[in-house]
Amino acid sequence: MRTDCLKKSQEKRITITFYNEEYQRNIARVNSKKGRYMKGKRQSTVEPVFGTLT
């Protein structure tokens, strides 16, 4: 069973954070209609300036 689960790696890690509820809330906020709008707005105003500076 171990070889079936692990394949070539020696260990399998499962990470669950205490802040999972906050992560899920943030993901929902970013994927909302307003979140997508704000991401597009940021990409067209702020990100090109950082690209020019670097």
Score class of each variant (00 low, 15 high):
residue 45 T to W: 01
residue 14 I to E: 09
residue 6 L to S: 01
residue 27 I to V: 11
residue 23 Y to D: 04
residue 32 S to T: 02
residue 41 K to H: 05
residue 3 T to S: 09
residue 48 P to V: 03
residue 41 K to E: 05
residue 10 Q to L: 13
residue 48 P to Y: 00
residue 43 Q to P: 00
residue 39 K to I: 03
residue 42 R to S: 04
residue 22 E to G: 01
residue 2 R to N: 13
residue 5 C to F: 05
residue 50 F to K: 10
residue 38 M to Q: 14
residue 41 K to P: 00
residue 11 E to L: 12
residue 28 A to I: 04
residue 13 R to F: 09
residue 26 N to W: 09
residue 11 E to S: 15
residue 16 I to D: 03
residue 34 K to F: 07
residue 38 M to W: 03
residue 9 S to F: 07
residue 41 K to M: 13
residue 4 D to Y: 02
residue 42 R to Y: 10
residue 14 I to P: 00
residue 16 I to L: 11
residue 26 N to A: 12
residue 13 R to D: 09
residue 54 T to D: 13
residue 38 M to F: 07
residue 19 Y to I: 06
residue 24 Q to L: 15
residue 32 S to L: 04
residue 31 N to W: 03
residue 49 V to W: 02
residue 7 K to F: 05
residue 54 T to G: 13
residue 37 Y to H: 08
residue 46 V to C: 05
residue 34 K to Q: 07
residue 47 E to N: 14
residue 30 V to N: 03
residue 4 D to S: 07
residue 38 M to V: 09
residue 25 R to A: 14
residue 7 K to D: 15
residue 9 S to G: 11
residue 26 N to K: 08
residue 10 Q to W: 02
residue 18 F to D: 15
residue 9 S to N: 13
residue 47 E to I: 09
residue 49 V to M: 02
residue 3 T to Y: 04
residue 54 T to F: 13
residue 27 I to E: 06
residue 49 V to F: 07
residue 18 F to E: 14
residue 2 R to V: 07
residue 19 Y to F: 12
residue 15 T to S: 09
residue 18 F to H: 12
residue 51 G to K: 15
residue 6 L to N: 01
residue 25 R to D: 06
residue 28 A to T: 05
residue 32 S to H: 01
residue 40 G to I: 02
residue 22 E to C: 10
residue 31 N to A: 12
residue 34 K to A: 06
residue 44 S to N: 10
residue 32 S to G: 02
residue 52 T to W: 15
residue 12 K to T: 01
residue 19 Y to A: 14
residue 17 T to V: 09
residue 44 S to M: 12
residue 31 N to P: 00
residue 28 A to S: 10
residue 14 I to N: 14
residue 33 K to H: 04
residue 14 I to R: 12
residue 39 K to N: 05
residue 8 K to F: 08
residue 3 T to I: 13
residue 30 V to M: 11
residue 17 T to L: 14
residue 49 V to R: 03
residue 30 V to S: 07
residue 1 M to W: 07
residue 18 F to S: 10
residue 17 T to G: 09
residue 31 N to H: 11
residue 16 I to F: 04
residue 2 R to L: 11
residue 20 N to C: 04
residue 54 T to K: 15
residue 34 K to S: 07
residue 31 N to C: 06
residue 43 Q to E: 11
residue 42 R to W: 09
residue 43 Q to S: 08
residue 45 T to V: 09
residue 7 K to G: 09
